[in-house]
């Protein structure tokens, strides 16, 4: 464990909590893409199947349980509790455009052709594109509440910190997880234009982020 990975996990946790609290306190999921949240729940489910078979550390196990619980709680709030505030017509990204290539690629490119390994690879590839429906919804509605942009900021920052973690682990222990690194770089690239808007619009404007 190193400071970059720990900071990354904390950012990830903060992002998930920001979103969950926003939905719970505003009792509304307007402007939130339910599809992205479903994809994140699938990412955690397919990645943490080794929760009961592989024990890494108490931290690892606890964080996996927390991420699973919070992501399913978020999906529950969106599709069950506050479903009347869910504007599905704005959440129109075609998930098959993401799932088909990700499933295909995870069968082609993986470390071992075993169910657990293919599912792990699937979750890595899926995570890199899971935010697309949310970013698509923001471009479609042309705006995002500032709390949603804070959520996206921490979510994007988490994987950027993981890249620093991979650089650190490569130089200190020769560790290099090619699938995770390539996918993590792609994922972070998707956030770059958002980061630019976040810094120029939200942090200065202190208001809603309206796309040009």
């Amino acid at each position: 464990m190193n400071i970059f990975r720990l900071a990354g996990d904390v950012c990830h946790l903060v992002a998930i909590i920001i979103l969950l609290l926003k939905i719970w306190r505003s009792r509304s999921c307007a402007g939130i893409s339910g599809k992205s949240q479903v994809l994140f729940a699938i990412v955690f489910t397919t990645r943490y199947l080794d929760l009961f078979t592989v024990f890494i550390s108490p931290y690892n196990t606890i964080m996996k349980v927390v991420f699973l619980a919070l992501s399913y709680a978020t999906v529950y709030l969106i599709y069950m509790r506050f479903r009347n505030t869910f504007n599905s017509e704005n959440d129109s990204f075609r998930l098959e455009f993401l799932l088909v290539p990700v499933i295909g690629l995870s069968f082609l490119e993986n470390y071992a052709f075993t169910p657990l390994e293919i599912l792990w690879t699937f979750s890595i590839f899926l995570e890199s594109v899971a935010i697309m429906p949310q970013l698509f919804m923001i471009t479609k509605t042309g705006e995002a509440e500032s709390i949603t942009t804070h959520y996206l900021f921490f979510l994007g920052l988490y994987r950027a910190l993981y890249i620093a973690n991979w650089v650190w682990r490569y130089h200190t222990e020769g560790f290099f997880d090619q699938i995770a690194v390539v996918s993590g770089v792609v994922q972070t690239i998707f956030y770059i234009d958002f980061f630019y808007l976040y810094v120029t619009k939200v942090l200065r404007g202190r208001g809603k982020m309206t796309l040009p």
């Binding site: 990975r5 996990d9 990830h12 990645r47 080794d50 592989v54 890494i56 690892n60 964080m63 996996k64 991420f67 470390y111 071992a112 390994e117 792990w120 993981y162 973690n165 560790f175 290099f176 997880d177 090619q178 699938i179 995770a180």
Partner: peptide, 10 residues
């Protein structure tokens, strides 16, 4: 490859 052995990252 050893990465496949144990994915120790979240």
């Amino acid at each position: 490859t050893d990465e496949a052995a144990n994915h120790d990252e979240l």
